[in-house]
Design a binder for these strands. Structure first.
Lengths: 154, 154
DNA sequence: TATTGTTATACTCTATAACTATA
DNA sequence: TATAGTTATAGAGTATAACAATA
C-alpha cells in the first residue's frame, strides 16, 4: 500500500512564518489606522484615544472617569491628562456628586455636543476610505471577530 | 397607503457608536495581544517588535536593516537600538557587503537559530490561547482581513 | 542625487506604584 | 478596607529631521 503524500505542507512543525501570526497583522492594521486617524485630525489636535474618551462620555453622560477607564480599557492614571486637556479646551464639564464626594460626573459641553457629530461622521468616512479593500459585510465580520478577541482576553 | 416603518434603526445618521468603529476594536485587540506577548516572554526580555525583527532576519537571511524596515513597516531610525541589543546578546551577526560599503548583511547567530524555533512555537501556542474564542477558520479569516487592511493602506 | 546606517529628539500610549480624600 | 482621582515615573512604539559615508 503506497504512502499518500500531501501535495502541499502549509505549516511544517516549528516553522510558523510571521505572515501566519495574528498578532503581526493586528499591529500592522492598528498602526495603519492610528496613523490615518492622526493625519485626518491633525488640525483639530484630536488623537484616537482622547476621541474614544469623548465618545464614551457622550454615550454615558454623567459617568465617571473610573467608569470610562473600565469601559475603554485605560488605566485611571492615564485618563487624567486627557480629561484635563478637554477641560482646558472647554469640551467637558465636571460636576461633583452630592452623594459621593470622591467622584466627578462628566458630561460634554455645549460646544463638544455640537462638534462631536461632525467628528464622528468624519471618523466613519475615514474608516470607509481606509478599509476600502473590505466590503461592508467584511468590515462587520472584522469588528465582530476583533470584539470577541479582546472581550475574551479581559 | 400606510408608511412601513423599520422595526430597528441600526445606525441613525451621525449616530455612530464607538462599538461600531473598526479602529476601536483594532486597538483593543492589538493591546490585548501585545500585553499577552510581553507577559509570556518577560523572562526572555523579548518584545513583540524585536521578535518580528528576529523572524524577518530568519526568513530573509542576508537581508539588510533598511529592507527589514520596509518589510515590517518600521522607521530605519527605530531598528538601530533593536539590532544593537541583539548584537550585544549575540543573537545576530552583521557582515559588511564587499560590493556595497553602505550596507550590512544580517543573519542569525547559531544561538538564535537554536532558540527561535522554540520561541516561535510558544508564540503560536500563546495565540491559540489568546484567540480561544475563535475557531481556526475564523483566525485565518481574521488574518486575511487584517492583511488586506494594512496592505491596502500602504 | 539617492540610499544606508545612524544620532537626536519628541510624542503617544501603556503600566506601575503610591498618595489623599472619601466611602 | 475599598474606591476615586491624582501625581510621578518608566518603558515601548512610532515619527521626523538631520548627518556622514557610500553609491
Amino acid at each position: 500500500m503506497p504512502m499518500i503524500q500531501k501535495a502541499i505542507e502549509p505549516d511544517v512543525a516549528g516553522e510558523s512564518r510571521l505572515e501566519d501570526l495574528v498578532g503581526y497583522h493586528l499591529r500592522r492594521a492598528s498602526v495603519a489606522d492610528m496613523n490615518d486617524f492622526v493625519r485626518c485630525f491633525r488640525a483639530e489636535g484630536l488623537r484616537p484615544i482622547p476621541f474614544s474618551v469623548l465618545c464614551a462620555i457622550d454615550e454615558q453622560p454623567g459617568t465617571t472617569s473610573a467608569e470610562i477607564c473600565r469601559i475603554l480599557g485605560l488605566q485611571r492614571a492615564n485618563i487624567v491628562s486627557i480629561l484635563a486637556e478637554f477641560d482646558e479646551r472647554g469640551l467637558i464639564e465636571r460636576h461633583s456628586d452630592p452623594n459621593d464626594q470622591r467622584i466627578q460626573r462628566l458630561s460634554l459641553s455645549a460646544e463638544a455636543k455640537s462638534l462631536l457629530p461632525g467628528w464622528r461622521a468624519r471618523v466613519v468616512e475615514r474608516e470607509e476610505k481606509l478599509f476600502h479593500t473590505l466590503t461592508a459585510g467584511e468590515r462587520r465580520t472584522l469588528c465582530e471577530l476583533l470584539a470577541r478577541v479582546w472581550k475574551g482576553a479581559e
